[in-house]
Design a protein around this nucleic acid. Structure first.
Length: 892
DNA sequence: AAATAGACTTGATTCTAGTAAC
DNA sequence: GTTACTAGAATCAAGTCTATTT
């Protein structure tokens, strides 16, 4: 805490405002815009209305504390101008020197449109090291070979001699601008793969002046981004290459200049090994597949790689595991920590940690509205009423159609009711009075004036403010979820066996607090109660946890927010690991290709599974318990989830994470097809396709191929490389708006690959028909204009308008102009419609947040003079602050 | 080697507030 | 000024993966 005071400039948030910061923000924002809320957002909220408990909690009375617990409002940030945050961001990211030189677009206006270009390029200095960097990049560039492309892209190459119909993502079939499925599209562009050449083109061919300009936009850079900032801003991200990253260990290490070097060296060495990568993957695959079993050779190769890696580039393996783990910060650790605050000691995540614990939802406030049992009002104790209300409020949700939900609810409620309660079954319960009461409360809330709302918000803010921040190694950081989850009915996704169960209220006695040794222990906010336990474990990043009331084996953690350095650090490491995969992917692919026909069934299954993960970006697929929804990932695929379609296609159909359906038909290499045939033989539909496999075996195997490699890395790799390749292939000179379209298009393809879906909004159909209507209107106008044009040309006056009024007599030119304007309008609307229809089931956000290396985006923005905030919103900018000063030439 | 515990990331949905459209 | 629409934030469920224990 002491720390807190110093260097404001570097703090992520202005300390000055800190204390009242949030409040101020709030006032600010609310002041002028509040009126807006008067909105009556009906339909949506209404229909699900009570559904979630959250809503309940929002409901004024439910929790008693009127609104104070509402959720969303907290967001401190919304200061009208983005300036502040951006400043902070840039500060944090550019560590030192030329503060002025770097003008991240961010720093500029909020939504700079064209004009921003200039702004962006304003104060740039050409970085002396630019050339150096270029050189580095070239090196990197040269390494690109087709391996760096997503497998799906490559397949094309390999297959193109045969048929080209690989990945057909059903969803994509509707794609608008690209009504062609991604796969097909890709096929069309066989070159996609040649990243290197593209890249070279772009970089090398550019005139220097241009380069310089770009550079300016970019991060400035005179100093290496990687340098450690002298200032105590956010803790410096470990620049070192992620490599270690792969292993969880040394997180905060001192930033050493060596950063870039490492990767390079690795690459070099790898290169030697990878010679065979020069051969197009397709050929390689063929080669290996055809030429009998060369597993031994492969093995050697792999081994070599690994070795090289280990010795040549920093050692990946985790050295030293934490010996002292959970016990609470081992004294040793703290000692060493203290000595070398920034040196990455194996597991240490922080040195000092100060925070105020968590905030609890307000106690339940009984409303006294009586439900009916067999038509008669029933008196309920507040505890029973609370639970009844949770249920009542879910009336409009789908859960009410599910017997499992009702049954689970009844079982839990009944326990509370006790044997002899009047209420003996759910069927005779009528919750309508409570439901109605809830609706009216909601309505009341809606009707509040902006003043009232504002006041409530401020009040809430006041209560919460102290919980919103933590001080980690002297830096004030946002806490993510400092609110303890309120009680409610469990809403599992899909057919979750536990849906409807009562999620009981969490009390201080359930919560374990993790905090710095010397930090004051947070005061327990509920008088008379106390925390379950206090720990001082600096090998973990959580601030608090409690065990999940629905499944006591699981924990609910309180972590820092995504914008924190700690999170940023691991995010960066994640992407570095994925980038590392680029260097290994060639060998990995040839290795598993060889094993498609392995006699060792386990090997064969590993090979095929790895292939699917690589090609389709499937999740690993851990085993699940019976008390969880029945969903699968790669390792847990069932025989029935894969259908063979001769001669060499596989049709996948299963429920993945969150019970989201995955449907995809893909063309695969024949050996894979045959292997699947073999795995399915003599099995029942519900049997495991990969009976010899589980995620730990698979990951253990992957780790032999590349340090730190696990199944999920392929997803990250696949997503990011796809973005990188598509952006660089498709971006053309032109308007910012067009470039953004290119970005969104790439983003969408990634979302499709990752199967990121969203449910169609209720109003979608209505919205579409509205648009259609408008288009029709415009078309009518167009027709009329054309008629008038004809008449005008013949010297006649315009026709009468529909309402019989006279129109202005316009000349032919004028009419022609109008016609083309109208046409443009129509086209635009049609495009918008297409896009809308197209994206109605595709969620772009998830991949942006979790899978796309932000440096690709930032670098692209710099290169193409697109203001970064056109792509990243405020929270993304904060989350990715570590990526903001990336070199414009950065390629994934 | 399998099960369990633990920690952290990923993900769809819900909620809120800002803005656009009427 | 309302109402409709939406982006972004918040929520919390559901994954992944590692380490430890049995």
């Amino acid at each position: 805490m002491a720390v807190e005071t110093s260097d404001k400039p570097n703090l992520p948030h202005d300390f000055d405002d800190d204390d009242d910061g949030p409040v101020i923000y709030k006032r600010y924002s609310s002041s002028k815009k509040n009126q807006l809320h008067s909105e009556v957002r009906k339909s949506s909220s209404h229909s699900h209305a009570g559904q979630s408990y959250r809503q309940i909690s929002d409901a004024p009375s439910l929790n008693g504390q009127t609104f104070s617990m509402q959720k969303g409002s907290t967001v401190p940030s919304p200061k009208p101008s983005p300036v502040k945050p951006s400043v902070a961001i840039s500060k944090a990211s550019k560590s030192l020197v030329n503060t002025s030189s770097t003008k991240l677009p961010v720093a500029n206006s909020k939504a700079p449109s064209l004009g921003d270009k200039q702004k962006m390029s304003v104060d740039v200095k050409v970085e002396p090291k630019y050339i150096e960097r270029c050189a580095k990049n070239f090196v990197e560039d040269s390494e690109d070979d087709e391996d760096n492309k997503p497998l799906s892209f490559r397949l094309k190459n390999s297959n193109h001699d045969n048929k080209a119909t690989p990945v057909v993502v059903k969803k994509s079939s509707e794609d608008s601008d690209d009504d062609v499925p991604l796969a097909k599209k890709l096929y069309r562009n066989p070159n996609l793969g040649t990243t290197s050449s593209n890249r070279d083109d772009s970089d090398q061919k550019k005139p220097i002046s241009k380069i310089q300009k770009e550079r300016q936009n970019g991060a400035g850079l005179s100093n290496k981004k990687d340098r450690p900032s002298p200032l105590p801003a956010k803790r410096p991200l470990d620049n070192s290459d992620s490599l270690h990253a792969s292993v969880k260990k040394p997180k905060v290490s001192d930033p050493v200049a060596s950063i870039k070097t490492k990767p390079v060296s690795v690459k070099h060495e790898l290169k030697v090994e990878d010679d065979d990568d020069d051969i197009p993957i397709s050929q390689r695959i063929k080669k290996s597949a055809m030429s009998g079993d060369k597993s031994s050779a492969t093995k050697k190769l792999l081994t070599k790689v690994t070795k090289v890696n280990k010795s040549g580039s920093k050692p990946f393996k985790k050295q030293i595991k934490k010996t002292v783990k959970k016990s609470g910060s081992g004294s040793e650790y703290s000692k060493s920590t203290k000595l070398l605050p920034s040196s990455g000691d194996g597991q240490k995540k922080w040195t000092t940690l100060v925070h105020n614990g968590v905030i609890f939802p307000p106690p339940y406030q009984p409303h006294g509205v009586k439900m009916l049992y067999k038509g008669r009002p029933v008196d309920l104790t507040p505890e029973l009423e609370e639970v009844a209300t949770m249920y009542a409020v879910m009336r409009d949700t789908e859960y009410m159609q599910k017997d499992r939900f009702k049954e689970n609810f009844w079982n839990d409620w009944r326990k509370l009711l006790g044997r002899n309660h009047v209420i003996q079954n759910l069927k005779d319960c009528d919750f309508t009075p409570i439901y109605d009461w809830y609706q009216s409360e909601k309505e009341k809330k809606k009707q509040m004036t902006t003043e009232e709302k504002k006041a409530l918000k401020e009040e809430k803010m006041k209560l919460e403010e102290k919980y919103m921040w933590a001080i980690v190694d002297g830096v004030k950081e946002k806490v993510g979820n400092f609110r303890v989850e309120p009680p409610g009915l469990f809403r599992g996704r899909g057919e979750h066996p536990k849906m409807g169960k009562l999620k009981r209220r969490i009390r201080p006695g359930d919560i374990t607090i993790n905090i710095g040794k010397d930090a004051p222990i947070p005061e327990c906010p509920i008088p008379g109660e106390s925390w379950k336990e206090i720990r001082n474990d600096n090998t973990v990043t959580w601030l608090a946890y409690w065990s999940d009331p629905i499944n006591p084996k699981l924990f609910k953690y309180v972590f820092l927010a995504a914008s924190s350095s700690l999170k940023g650090q691991s995010d960066k490491e994640k992407y570095e690991k994925a980038r590392m995969l680029k260097n290994y992917i060639g060998n990995i692919r040839s290795a598993y290709t060889k094993d498609f026909t392995s006699k060792d069934i386990t090997k064969q299954q590993i090979a095929v599974a790895t292939y699917l993960i690589d090609k389709l970006a499937l999740r690993a697929g851990n085993e699940k318990d019976d008390d969880e929804a029945d969903t699968v990932g790669c390792c847990t695929l069932k025989v029935e989830n894969v259908t063979r379609e001769p001669p060499n296609k596989l049709k996948f159909n299963f429920l993945g994470k969150d019970s989201i359906k995955y449907e995809n038909t893909v063309e695969v290499e024949l050996p894979v097809y045959n292997a699947i045939l073999k795995f399915q033989k003599d099995k029942k539909p519900g049997d495991d396709l990969f009976d010899q496999l589980d995620t730990s075996k698979l990951n253990a195997h992957l780790k032999e191929l590349m340090p730190g490699l696990t199944a999920k890395v392929f997803r990250t790799f696949n997503a990011s490389i796809t973005l990188d390749v598509m952006l660089n292939k498709e971006t053309k000179d032109g308007e910012v708006g067009e470039k953004i379209v290119v970005y969104q298009h790439a983003n969408k393809q990634v979302a499709i690959i990752c199967n990121h879906q969203r449910s169609v909004s209720k109003s979608h159909t209505a919205q579409m028909s509205k648009l259609t209507e408008k288009i029709d209107e415009l078309q009518a106008v167009l027709k009329e204009l054309k008629t008038d044009l004809d008449r005008a040309r013949k010297g006649k006056p315009p026709s009468k308008s529909s309402d019989g009024k006279r129109k202005k007599n316009l000349g032919p030119e004028m009419l022609e102009k109008k016609i083309s304007q109208t046409n443009a309008k129509i086209e635009k609307m049609q495009r918008d419609m297409k896009t809308k229809e197209d994206l109605k089931t595709v969620a772009l956000g998830t991949s942006k947040i979790n899978y796309l290396d932000p440096r690709i985006t930032v670098a692209w923005c710099k290169r193409h003079e697109v203001p970064i905030e056109k792509i990243f919103n405020k929270s993304l900018l904060a989350k990715f602050c570590w990526a903001m000063d990336v070199d414009p030439d950065f390629r994934f």
